[in-house]
Design a protein around this nucleic acid. Sequence first.
DNA 1: CGGATATTTACAAGTATTAGACGAAGTATT
DNA 2: AATACTTCGTCTAATACTTGTAAATATCCG
Lengths: 398, 398
Amino acid sequence: MLRRTTSDIRRANRLDVLRRIYAAGSASRQDIARRSELSFATIANVVNDLLGAGVIVEDHFVGSGSGRPRAVLTPNGVRGLLVGVDVAETYVHAELFDLALRRLHAGEHPIGPETRRPAEIAERIARAIDALLAEHGAARERVLGVGVSVPGQVAPQLGVSVFAPGWDWHDVPMLALLQERIGLPLYLDNPLMAGTVAELWSGAGREAGNLVCVTVGTGVGAGVVIGGSLYRGTTDAAGEWGHSVLVYGGRACRCGSRGCVEAYVGAPGIMETLRELDPGSELLCGGDQTACVQALADSPDAGPVITRTAGLLGAALAGLVNIINPETVVLSSWVARSLGPRLLPELRESVAAHALDRAMGAVHIVLSDIPGNAVSLGAATFALEGFLDAVISPGRRT
Amino acid sequence: MLRRTTSDIRRANRLDVLRRIYAAGSASRQDIARRSELSFATIANVVNDLLGAGVIVEDHFVGSGSGRPRAVLTPNGVRGLLVGVDVAETYVHAELFDLALRRLHAGEHPIGPETRRPAEIAERIARAIDALLAEHGAARERVLGVGVSVPGQVAPQLGVSVFAPGWDWHDVPMLALLQERIGLPLYLDNPLMAGTVAELWSGAGREAGNLVCVTVGTGVGAGVVIGGSLYRGTTDAAGEWGHSVLVYGGRACRCGSRGCVEAYVGAPGIMETLRELDPGSELLCGGDQTACVQALADSPDAGPVITRTAGLLGAALAGLVNIINPETVVLSSWVARSLGPRLLPELRESVAAHALDRAMGAVHIVLSDIPGNAVSLGAATFALEGFLDAVISPGRRT
DNA sequence: CGGATATTTACAAGTATTAGACGAAGTATT
DNA sequence: AATACTTCGTCTAATACTTGTAAATATCCG
């Protein structure tokens, strides 16, 4: 059970207000009051906190018929910089943002399969950040925080990578390793959580309180947002939806089990479906995941695979919709981006066929509209949240 | 987004403290302070609120080595009475509790298939309550609240039965119908939520903050508790887990879809499994659900059905464990009660085979240990929560 | 009967929300 | 140009809650 104190209320309200400003791009105090449950006085207080911290500014004023014009609040980009890093088995992708979460610069550095020791990876991350800042000519002091997403399961409070299957990591104190090399405020998490937070602040989840962000890439996962805040579960393991059983006794999955969602709707799973339907298909592209998925997105012959995949993914999603009853389900990651537009109509039908009416009636199923790498954006968003907590000291109303 | 005010903190803390006292049966302020995250001062304040409201009493004192003995707090049974009613398609089951949630009396009244109009059902409920009180010789004025569980989907805030498939109810204003006939504080919900709350206050979920209560009866559902409070979803439809897909393209389900969890591990589903494995089995008991499940629980020949059902249910549960990452999964309702003891060992293996290690390591999978009807207990618990909010006016510290 | 010890209460300090009064900054009207 | 009106934002007072600390209380032990 969480400790409940008045400051927690304030922190939650602060995040609520700030997220609305980011989500809308800009908003007046009145706009916020209309949309949120808070009183105007509270909003004014919180906004003053945020103005005092320099996180937002009164960008301009807009007339209101007759009367005092309202101040339009926007994120204060020039206040400083944020870095978001998306680390995967094959690359380190680092992006630089201003405080308004506008992307300023990006860099990607491949990682060879021989590089897998935690210290080595940490070094690559550090160098990627150094390069990013150097290329953009940004002074290190202007960076307010760095968010890093590493694959697998992460315990953010402990700063530990609990388990990363690709590298066979177990309980690696990644935060400490990075800390000594980077020397900036640092926040560690995994791609699932980062992607979900990106949707919550900047993507299709902007309006939602209960949100499920489904990642469909090589792997499959589901980040869950409840009441506007990320749900992590008892041991930071929530959201491993990819290994729910969809076809009992079905395909073998890389996790050792059978019939997992991931084995059907992850990129390798879709390729397997293609092989089943048309063993000699040219669309397989010699087994290249990326090429195959792109080919499916473009080819007029992909209909059967699309239909079958939509059916499978829809049935799986329906389970989530039935249990969580969310306002929004966002599909993200690269497979969703490539195949999503073709998948979506049949997918919605399939979900509707398997979900209960009342839950189905409440949910919007949409594709992510975040351009570029959502994971590094999410990682930077973690850094933003962390910076906010750090910069606003309690009781600054005097 | 919920409105956040300081009183909400107090209400949450009050419920937290009270639930711990009920869960443990009795506890000293010190015990509570040790187990909860709250400061001793807060606990003392909250306890004084509860004492003032007469909900708990200082039952006796117990020595503490040397020094002032601590007061042992217990629910104050004699403060008044609570009624919990479990309504199903075939019966109205009403139970009388004291404020300590000890069952004092119970009565069950069958409903014929011709009785299905909301007004008729409301009348049956009212009469069941009248009979319950009369039989126990309890004065109506002593009843502090009545909780009623009706089947299907319910919107408790609106007091509406949104949908009850068995009776073909749509948006029935049940609370209003009952209100005029009963004239006592009334709380409406459905069996899934009631059963879950019963586990949270009085059952296997007593220690848990994140809990999933899986109902395995004729139907199948999953009540979700997050951070110590019931999760209802965006439109009060969360927890309809029975219609998640477990076997894509599998058995037809009564919901119209195929391969639902319920079609395999609900009572009719288990019978279907039995028919598949041994078409002429005597254990089928001529198609009588209750008899068949009981026969399976007792018969030495039920091994294959048990194994297969454990495999299916385990795979389905693993999905829940992976997504929610709960501390506890409780199996409740009548099928779980009958078959649970035989099912559990293989069930745990099956869950472990399909769930990820980290989530699996954190979860306890147990059978409900609530004797009798958990739904009416849960309904009475809703009434208790409601009474608490009503009786404690804000700012009683003067 | 007088410490010693543990429990409980009381209080002050710090932080929050919020209604309502008031000042600020425009437009419309005379 | 002066005045009225409207809308927006600030500020103050009232109220609520948590929590650390000091004081009061209750029992045991010698």
